[in-house]
Write a protein that binds this DNA or RNA. Structure first.
Lengths: 190, 190
DNA sequence: TGTACATCAGTGAACGCGCGTTCACTGATGTAC
DNA sequence: TGTACATCAGTGAACGCGCGTTCACTGATGTAC
């Protein structure tokens, strides 16, 4: 049953990808390793050939989730559709698609309160992701001094994370839509 | 061992209060009923004399948590310390004290991503709390039309919830402080 | 290049543990007369 | 008002279940000669 080195690395990568998705969808605590392995088309016994613990997977999946959302924001900022960079990021982030698909979305929104209680190592890699995200947003504000742009970026990210989180909690569809719409509008004017 | 009606009601209330605190501190999923009961100085066997399920407790504890943070925001707004109402709420909410004490803080920040996945009934009572919170914030903006004030309130709450969440995730103390400071400053200018 | 042996990815069963929930029991409270 | 009985809050042990983790096993891959 032994697999080649290439296949092994590929399997490990698939487990991390699947976990990143499942964690964001169901929460880290509520997602079992057996579930992650089954979703990767493996049995759960093989997990420890790739990782030393669930915690190790959480760290890597969190990092992968941050990278993926930053990449998507970057792609949105680069799309030549007439919108300014920060505005394009805000529109993509505060979309109903993002709200309705946590499994592919931002870990800060999908796992926010769980990440606040996560291990130092997990919070460390997520912090690095936050810094990269802030840098990306700040870069899109070329007219200002970098310090001011960084501060603006912090504000934009806070509002975006809070808005997606709230829009997923409230049961009233109009209120949920209003949270996204109003936050977008206010960030546009900022 | 039977207790009087008054004592029974009081015990039930204490369980809800304790749960509201423990859930915000450790997360709903990670908090066991035995832990809640022990923190209420009871054994876990007695739980089902008061509630039909953990879910029922989650609903009541979430409602209690929302009521408590709104009450605190209301108190901050009423304090005669020269600050305008919304500004006083923002300063109290985005304080380091709030960041560092999730157990007494806002459930939207402490349980945000878990609440997004909670039962309809839980999300229903939290939604009612969100509406009350928005109403309170909007009330403090008397100069505007109510519609505009409501929209501003949505924006303020989104930014506050996101900022506290992020400030608890990041490991760098300067960045954590900056998230609170910068969000406060931007909301002041809004 | 071919052969013999060591390695190890993946399987499937098992482990101890803590979870939500149930239950027999105790004895003080509430109720009916 | 006093008495007899039913109720039920709280205790502590037990339940089935799913969790993270471990392990013996299989057989294809990697390595040494």
């Amino acid at each position: 049953m032994r697999k080649s080195k290439v296949e092994t690395a590929e399997t490990r990568r698939r487990i991390v990808e699947t976990a990143a998705r499942e964690f964001r969808r169901n929460g880290v605590h509520a997602t079992g390793l057996a579930e992650v392995m089954a979703a990767t088309s493996l049995t759960h016994g093989g997990f420890y050939r790739h990782f030393n613990s669930k915690e190790e997977l959480v760290v890597e999946a969190s990092a992968a989730g941050m990278e993926s959302i930053i990449e998507r924001a970057d792609a949105a900022a680069r799309r030549p559709d007439g919108k300014s960079g920060p505005q394009a990021i805000v529109e993509a982030y505060l979309s109903m698609d993002h709200r309705d698909d946590p499994s592919e979305g931002c870990p800060l929104a999908g796992l926010g309160s769980e990440l606040a209680r996560a291990s130092d190592e997990t919070r460390e890699v997520v912090s690095a992701g936050v810094l990269n995200f802030l840098e990306l947003i700040a870069e899109q504000m070329p007219r200002r001094k970098h310090e001011a742009a960084k501060s603006d970026a912090i504000f934009v990210l806070s509002a975006m994370v809070g808005a997606i989180t709230l829009s997923r909690i409230v049961t009233n569809p109009e209120l949920s839509a209003a949270i996204l719409r109003d936050t977008k509008r206010h960030l546009k004017n900022a």
